[in-house]
Simulated assay, not measured.
Amino acid sequence: MAFIFKIIGKEYINDILPLVKKLNADKISEAVLKGRITEMFTQNYECAGVFDGDTLIGVCGLWYCTRHYSGRSVEPDHVFIAEAYRGNGLGDRFFSWIYEYVAKKGYESVELNTYVNNSASHKFYYNQGFTILGYHFFKKL
């Protein structure tokens, strides 16, 4: 299959939402999620997409920053590939495209968070060469 990898704009928000919603189950309403993603597009954020023809089948947010310990860094966020497309190396191809894309923009490191209970993602990221540097702490205000 010939997949297309590209940066997509906020005009795709109605296509992005159903994919990101699956990551959050029923924890966040679609209206809140849409508002947050709309706001994200105004920050140091881009959304990468995987298309099968004209159909968006995968997304990955990219947050850009500079950190004292890693330099110019990008953080993949809300990575999701539609279930029907998993298990055939598409995630590897997507991340290879992301690495090349952000390296061309001058970024030198990639770091990310993944949910503790998402063991499939842990295996994927280990296979991508990621290591665990610490813990992600969260406190709701």
Rank of each mutant, 00 (worst) to 15 (best):
F5R: 10
R36D: 09
T38H: 02
Y69C: 11
V50A: 13
A31I: 08
D54S: 14
H78Y: 14
G61L: 07
I57A: 11
S121M: 06
E46A: 12
F94Q: 09
Y64M: 05
Y64W: 02
G106P: 00
A31Y: 05
K27Q: 09
W63P: 03
I28H: 09
S96F: 08
R72H: 08
D52K: 13
N24G: 07
Y45R: 05
E75F: 15
E111G: 08
C47K: 01
S121Q: 02
Y45M: 08
M40G: 03
F94V: 11
I16V: 14
K123W: 10
E83I: 03
V20S: 03
I28M: 12
D92H: 13
Y64I: 04
G35N: 14
K27M: 07
K123L: 14
R36Y: 12
K123Q: 14
N127K: 02
Y99R: 03
K10G: 05
L112P: 10
K34P: 05
D52W: 04
I8G: 07
Y101I: 10
K21A: 14
I16Q: 12
I37N: 07
D26M: 06
Y45T: 08
G106S: 00
N117G: 11
G71E: 11
V110S: 01
V116T: 14
D54L: 11
T131A: 03
F137V: 02
W63A: 04
D54K: 15
K21S: 15
Q43R: 10
R86V: 05
R93P: 00
G49C: 06
D15L: 04
C60S: 07
K104F: 04
F124P: 03
F80I: 07
D92W: 10
Y85A: 00
S109R: 03
D26S: 11
G49A: 01
Y126P: 00
V79D: 04
T55W: 06
R86G: 07
G91Y: 04
A120W: 00
A25M: 05
G49R: 06
N127G: 05
L23Q: 02
N117Y: 13
W63Q: 05
I37P: 07
R86E: 02
F51Y: 12
Q43V: 05
A82R: 06
L90A: 02
L23T: 01
V74E: 00
R67E: 12
S29R: 00
I81R: 09
V20F: 06
Y85V: 04
A48I: 00
S70W: 11
K104P: 03
D52M: 07
F41N: 01
E100R: 13
G71P: 12
S119I: 13
V50G: 13
G89Y: 03
L33P: 09
T42I: 05
G49P: 00
I57W: 11
T66E: 11
